[in-house]
């Protein structure tokens, strides 16, 4: 028996949240809710993608996202192949296109791509006949992360509209932040950005996002506190003076979390730097949704792959 792919999703690729309508997003979240139930059964295997080939093409190492996509593909019945491409071996756009053309000749159905350069996934999508899913491109977008965050929020708060979400930390370098900002705003949440000015993208306030440089002010009355990872190389005086100083002013500990609503929930896309952007007691505490986010990751990726199924080539 084959689960009939549902034609709810009008796009051939998922390259970003930008370009999705609120209806698209809602449909994906509804579909993902169903996948959560599938994943909790003994028999987790569906047949939507039976016979299909999914290539996970990761130019940047990522255990978490890659295994999440792998499990999602396998649960839908696809043949999943992981291609690790050392980011050092691929440096030029030309090589990226060569890789795309070569892979395309193998007639895959879906390519899931992560690349360190913003826009690289879009470039690749132009050169292949199959569907492309962006698993993160530079500091641009990470759409499945934003969708899984939205699913986690919706399942815990019952809605997204009207919530106040504070996204805190290294906004400047974060694709997670960008995708979340677009999605949450599209779904009617009030999005705040909280970070030292050195980590806030210039001009972002003009896009309609409230920015705060103090956690106390930025977290006040927040329903969701979304923390971002700060890369080690950015903590040594370039963007932020030190880990100690960053944690003192921007690290989420219970004291700062208390500025938010009493029922505020804490999220983090992982992997966490404990003691840098988040304290262990908050990360592991009652208000934390961090582990649930990982579970929702598989469900959302299943939903995305299934939504794209109706557009796949090789019919």
């Amino acid at each position: 028996m084959t689960d009939a792919p549902r034609s709810v999703f009008p796009h051939r690729h998922l390259l970003g949240i930008e370009g999705l309508s609120p209806l698209d997003i809602q449909a994906l979240l509804d579909l993902a809710d169903e996948q959560v139930e599938v994943s909790r059964q003994v028999e987790k295997r569906k047949t939507t993608l039976r016979g299909r080939t999914q290539i996970n093409l990761f130019f940047e190492a990522s255990t978490r996202t890659q295994s999440s996509f792998e499990i999602a593909g396998k649960r839908l019945g696809a043949d999943v192949m992981n291609m690790q491409v050392g980011s050092s071996s691929v440096k030029k756009g030309e090589t990226l296109i060569d890789t795309a053309v070569t892979l395309n000749a193998m007639r895959p159905d879906i390519i899931v791509v992560r690349h360190h350069a913003a826009g690289a996934v879009h470039l690749l999508a132009q050169k292949v006949d199959c569907s492309v899913v962006n698993a993160g491109d530079g500091a641009h977008e990470h759409p499945t992360q934003a969708l899984l965050d939205a699913l986690t929020i919706r399942r815990n708060k019952g809605r997204i509209e009207g919530l106040t979400v504070a996204i805190c930390g290294d906004i400047l370098h974060s694709r997670v932040a960008r995708s979340n900002m677009i999605l949450l705003a599209a779904m009617g949440a009030r999005v705040r950005l909280v970070a030292p000015s050195t980590l806030i993208p210039p001009g972002i306030a003009r896009l309609g996002f409230e920015t705060f440089t103090s956690m106390e002010k930025g977290l006040r009355d927040a329903d969701i506190v979304m923390m971002l990872r700060l890369q080690r190389e950015r903590m040594n005086g370039s963007f932020v003076p030190s880990v100690k100083e960053y944690f003192r002013f921007y690290g989420l500990d219970q004291e700062k979390l208390n500025f938010a609503k009493p029922d505020a929930l804490v999220m983090h896309p992982g992997p966490m730097n404990r003691g840098v952007e988040i304290s262990s007691d908050v990360a592991d505490g009652e208000q934390s949704l961090i582990r649930e986010q990982v579970e929702m990751g598989v469900a959302v990726r299943m939903a995305v792959l299934e939504a794209l199924a109706s557009h796949l080539p090789n019919r």
């Binding site: 040594n236 005086g237 370039s238 003076p241 030190s242 100690k244 100083e245 003192r248 002013f249």
Partner: peptide, 15 residues
């Protein structure tokens, strides 16, 4: 303003 007055990395201004 910078660590060790070296002009390379900013000091812990907040602390």
């Amino acid at each position: 303003l910078t660590k060790g007055l070296q002009g390379a990395e900013m000091a812990e201004i907040g602390r």
